[in-house]
Simulated scan of single mutants.
Amino acid sequence: MTTPLRRPGKCWKRRARSAIREVPAPPVYLRMVNEHIDRYGVAPDGRLYRASNGGILLSKEYTAVWKEARKIALPRKMANSPFAEVPYALRKAGISFWLRCGMDPAEAASRAGHSVAVLYKFYARILDGRREQANALIDRAMREAEGA
């Protein structure tokens, strides 16, 4: 399942201003987004998140909310640490999660809007140490091939 992703008034990396990038989204995520829309609606121009007056949400506004949310959601020790210090940390955590779940790195790179080279540059340590998992995948595939 995919959903078109637009960035009004801004250009994606090396893409035309009018470009739409397809972003595959798992059903559980789409349900969460739809529940959010059912509860809060969208801005007149279709944006999912907006300022309380309906305008564009400025980074200083969501950063302030983020800081307060961290105090509420995290234990004091974590809230006082660099853990998830900025909202962008969620993107990195999400990509790391995909890779840890075993998502193909090329697919993860595509979903993140990266090249595979960029993905490996920044996420190599997530992919490291997976020898046993790789051996199990090869072993299973070889056993299936022998049985075919």
Rank of each mutant, 00 (worst) to 15 (best):
T2C: 12
T2Q: 11
P4R: 02
P4D: 01
G9P: 02
G9R: 09
K10N: 10
K10T: 08
W12G: 07
K13L: 11
K13C: 04
K13G: 08
R14I: 06
R21H: 10
E22D: 11
E22S: 13
V23A: 00
V23N: 00
V23L: 00
A25L: 15
P26R: 11
R31V: 11
V33W: 03
N34V: 05
E35P: 07
H36A: 12
I37D: 07
D38M: 11
Y40C: 14
G41R: 05
V42S: 09
D45E: 01
R50S: 11
A51P: 05
A51Y: 06
G54V: 08
G54F: 02
L57F: 02
L57W: 08
T63L: 15
V65H: 13
V65Q: 11
W66I: 04
W66K: 00
K67Q: 09
A69I: 08
L74I: 05
P75Q: 07
N80W: 03
S81L: 09
F83D: 03
V86S: 12
R91T: 02
R91P: 03
A93C: 10
G94D: 04
I95N: 05
M103C: 13
M103V: 06
P105N: 02
P105H: 02
P105S: 00
A106N: 14
A109E: 06
S110C: 13
S110W: 09
A112G: 13
G113P: 08
A117G: 04
V118I: 15
L119R: 01
Y120E: 03
Y123V: 06
L127A: 07
D128V: 00
G129P: 05
N135L: 15
N135V: 14
R140I: 04
A141I: 04
M142P: 09
R143K: 14
E144A: 02
A145N: 07
G147F: 14
G147A: 15
A148G: 14
